[in-house]
């Protein structure tokens, strides 16, 4: 299972790549593998505010719809429109397929996220 060390992870299998206060968010290799073929993505509006743990996007595989949770609180700065027309890239490149960029409102929330090694252990325990 591929888990890059340049970002942090949530227990709901999202990754968060931090660039100062801007955090790009996607789903992990483990998540895409569990979902199977992804055929649909619903993204939030730019400017919308989310609290950590809230559902900000939906990803659907052939079988079912799954919620995607915001790992940190903040305002949506950008959304990756490419996912709307080519959702399958999440399967082939989960760590390159960012869903949104959030302007983080509380740096302290990063403490709650897992480092790559911790996330790897977390996945084994599931």
């Amino acid at each position: 299972m591929n888990i890059p060390t340049d970002r942090k992870y949530s227990r709901e299998h999202e990754w968060a790549k931090i660039d100062n206060s801007e955090v790009s968010i996607g789903i992990t290799d483990h998540a895409q593998h569990e979902l199977g073929d992804i055929v649909f993505v619903e993204l939030p509006e730019v400017g919308a505010q989310y609290r950590a743990g809230e559902v900000f996007a939906v990803v659907e595989s052939v079988k079912a719809a799954s919620d995607v949770y915001a790992p940190v609180s903040g305002k949506i700065l950008k959304t990756n429109e490419e996912l709307l027309t080519a959702p399958e890239i999440i399967n082939s490149d989960p760590y390159g397929s960012w869903f949104v960029v959030i302007e983080m409102s509380d740096q302290g929330e990063l403490e709650q996220l897992l480092e790559a090694g911790e996330y790897s252990e977390f996945c084994k325990g599931e």
Binding site: G36, D37, V62
Partner: peptide
């Protein structure tokens, strides 16, 4: 099995 390689 729900799938082996991929449903698609």
């Amino acid at each position: 099995p729900v799938y082996y390689s991929s449903i698609l």
